[in-house]
Structures are given as structure tokens and as C-alpha cells.
Design a protein around this nucleic acid. Structure first.
Lengths: 236, 236
DNA sequence: CGTCAGCTTGATTACTTTCAATTGTTGTGG
DNA sequence: CCACAACAATTGAAAGTAATCAAGCTGACG
């Protein structure tokens, strides 16, 4: 794991602290800052790897990260995304297990690295934080279960539409409020929707001719979000 | 929700306390017992329903429960099983959300019903319990993610084999160490594996003619567990 | 300008679902 | 105890869906 130390403000005045760590007081945030490492991960670099021992908590200060797991025959399955303000690896730290998945930087990322010991200490002293973590886990579990049902019961077209909606929810749009603020390869979209690259391509162009989305090179424009939701057959 | 009050020992000497609530001391267990309701649920009865407001924690004292969610077109997807010693509903209680799924008694069940308030109070006072809950959630999340990958990437035959393995792990065997200690309909197995009833039947009889399992009426005998694992294409 | 990775398209194949029809099982009331 | 109804299991045939294989294309970059 390569990392170049850079200057990142202390946790005490991190603008991301609206996230999970918001319940900490100044003292605790200072404690968290103390001894933390900060790193830059280039696009494509692995932040941590499925199965490796978990020694750190990762706070994404800036960037986009994909979490994936290896399935049958080494095929990658994208499980979730994370972005600025999200934390990674807490699950493995709390249950003393190896990392459950592999985290890969999708763009250049600035990430704070907090040691297991510091995190555990802060966590022990702060019931509110535990509760936040429980709720975070709970949310992740909920969406994992939903994702499961989707993959199990929906058609490829519905799943691709669903994947696009997930991308909108995770990363939003560019300033034009229509262009998806993230670039994935067709094969990555396939790994997310649980289908093949070729089928993904065909389905995307089908959605395009249905005037639901528009494809401009690497960019995907969501021209009709309502229709996209309909295509995904999602009702909640 | 029907329930007949019955006599169940206080939590202080529940033999199931090896489970998640083991970290409680006598005082806390007494607190938990105080005011709890106990109920019997007949086979097929619903313990709680997806989307309903969550007011209770359910401790399974005896029985077998399936947790399912509704998917596309009302098709049921079985998400998980629970048995003696397991607790249900804690997730919704902790994050103040409606129940995420529907819990149905698979056989006659004795279940302790603990109110939200009591549970929250005990939980607040006991960091160890929070940690246990986190680890429980973490475990559930891990298996949900694994289930996701399985459904997304495996063939029906592999998924059915996987489903049978899950049933063995969840409920074990009868005294003969070979007959699955649970009875599901073919349609329920299908809901678990994410396939159709007909395909499930065909696949089961295929596994039967491969001498991996044996079908005897409602019972499924696992005659060759090793071969079953191979059939599931699972490698961990 | 060659190369490599990602993208696209077409054709074929394999797998699963769906529909339809039949048989088997279970529980209930007469 | 039987008959009936309701549900569960099974089997076959047809239709549909998506994966795979093969080939050509495109664009970025050293």
C-alpha cells in the first residue's frame, strides 16, 4: 500500500465531520487526529484488500471508492460505493475480522488513516458513536438485502437501471444536473448489476434509444430520471 | 398478532443466554425480564411484518423462524433464518425504523417479547452488549453480501446446493446425523435460492440422482456433504 | 504509428422460466 | 371413514433471456 503523506487538517475541524464521527467532542476528535496518517491513493490503487488483516479505519476526505468482493471464478462483484465523509473498514475493526471486501480508489483520493487502537478507544468511551455505527451497519445491511432481492428477481434491464440510480444517489450529477458525476467502465457497471459486459452495453443503448439516458463518450446523462425509475421497477 | 401467554423462565436463568445477551449481569437480565410478554406462535403465523412499526425485540426461546422480504410482483425472498437463542427485530429498534422484513414461524415457536424501552435502556448501559450487537450485524451483513454474490454469479444448481448447506448450518440434522432438521416446501427453497419452484424440483432430483442428497417425502437427507459443497462451488 | 484496453455488434448456445396438465398429500366437515 | 377442497409436487413442452464466443472498432498514449 503506497501512500504519500500530505497535509490534511486535523479531525477537529474536518468539514466532513457531519458524518459518522459527528458525535465526538473536541477532545475525542483530537485523540482521533493524534497519530493518524494521511494518504493519497491514485486512481485504481487498492486501499485495502479482501481477506487481509484489518489494522486501520479509513476516512475518505476526498474522492470516490468502490468496494467489491471476489465471487465465483474470480469475477468481481461491486458491493457498494463510498465517497467524501464516508468511513471504511470499521466493520472489520469492530468484529476483529479480516477485511470483508476490497476497496479501490476510483479517482485520486485523499484518505485519513486511523489506527485500530485509537478508534477502539474512542468508540468504547462514546455510546453515541456505537449507536451511530450500529445505524450505519443497519443501513448497509438494509441496502445489501435490497440489492440481493433486486439481483435475484429483476431482469437485466431493471438491474442496469437500478445500478444507474444507485450511481446517481451515491455520486450525484455534474453542474449541469444531468451528467452522472462518476465514470465507470462498462465492465464495472456489469459487475455492479451482476451481468456481462456485452449485455450491459446492449442494455445501455436500449435505455438510450428509449430516451431514458444519453451516452456521450465516457459520460452518462440521465435525461429522464422518472422513466429510469420506472425502468428499474422500483416502488419504494 | 395472536399470542397466548405461557410460562417461560425469567431471563436470569434462560439457557439460551449463551447468545447475544450473555454479557448482561443478573441485574440487567432481571430488568429485561421485567414486564416481558411471552408468546406462542403457531406454524405459519407472522411474528412481525415488513414495514410495520417496531415496538419489540423478539427472543426465540424455542422454534424456527424465517425472515423474508417482498420483492418484485410480491415474490417472496427468504433472507435469513433464526432459531432458539437468536434475537429478532433489534435492528429496527436500534435505528428507529420499521421492520425490514417479515418474520414467520416455521414451526410452533415460543418467543419472549421484550419492549423497545427496556431493550434500549439495557443497551445504553452496557457497552459490551452494543459491541455484541455490532458484531451480530456485521455477521449478518457479511452473509447478506455473500448471498448476494452467490445469487448474482452462480448457476441454479450451485445456488440450490448452497441453500441446502445454509439449511444444514442453520438447523443441523436429526439424530441420524443425515436428515435435515427442517422442512421447507419446494417453493420456499426456491424463494431462498432465488429461482422458480419447478426448477428447484428438477434440480433437487438431479442432485438426488447424482447421489448427493436423497429425497424421502418431506425430508431431505444429505448423503454426501462433501459432494454437496463441491456442487455449490464454494471455496471458503 | 503501433499497441492496448475498452467498446461494440452479431451469431450461437445454454440455461431458466413459464405455462399447462397431472398426480399426490393433507386436513376438514358431513 | 369418505369425499372434497386446497395445497404441494411433478413432468413435459415451448418461449425467452442472457451468457458466451468471435470479430472488428475506437481512442488514448508512449
Amino acid at each position: 500500500m503506497k501512500k504519500n503523506n500530505i497535509e490534511i487538517p486535523s479531525c477537529t475541524n474536518c468539514e466532513n465531520s457531519a458524518g459518522i464521527l459527528c458525535s465526538l467532542n473536541i477532545k475525542e476528535k483530537t485523540e482521533l487526529s493524534c497519530g493518524k496518517l494521511d494518504g493519497i491513493f491514485k486512481k485504481g490503487e487498492i486501499i485495502f484488500k479482501e481477506g487481509n488483516n484489518a489494522y486501520n479505519l479509513f476516512c475518505i476526505h476526498k474522492g470516490k471508492v468502490k468496494l467489491s468482493k471476489l465471487g465465483k471464478d474470480g469475477k468481481e462483484q461491486i458491493v457498494r460505493f463510498a465517497k467524501s465523509g464516508d468511513i471504511l473498514g470499521y466493520r472489520s475493526l469492530l468484529s476483529n475480522e479480516p477485511y470483508h471486501g476490497t476497496a479501490t480508489a476510483m479517482v485520486e483520493c485523499e484518505i485519513c488513516i486511523i489506527s485500530k487502537e485509537v478508534f477502539q478507544k474512542v468508540n468504547e468511551d462514546n455510546y453515541k458513536l456505537s449507536l451511530n455505527l450500529i445505524q450505519l451497519l443497519s443501513k448497509d445491511l438494509k441496502s445489501a438485502e435490497q440489492h440481493l432481492i433486486d439481483v435475484a428477481q429483476k431482469t437485466v434491464k431493471e438491474r442496469i437501471a437500478e445500478a444507474l440510480i444507485l450511481l446517481v444517489n451515491s455520486f450525484g450529477y455534474l453542474e449541469d444536473k444531468i451528467t452522472l458525476n462518476v465514470n465507470l467502465t462498462r465492465s464495472e457497471i456489469a459487475d455492479l448489476a451482476g451481468t456481462s459486459t456485452e449485455t450491459t452495453i446492449r442494455t445501455l443503448s436500449q435505455l438510450s434509444s428509449d430516451n431514458v439516458i444519453k451516452l456521450e463518450g465516457k459520460n452518462i446523462l440521465i435525461t429522464n430520471f422518472k422513466k429510469l425509475v420506472q425502468s428499474s421497477n422500483t416502488y419504494d
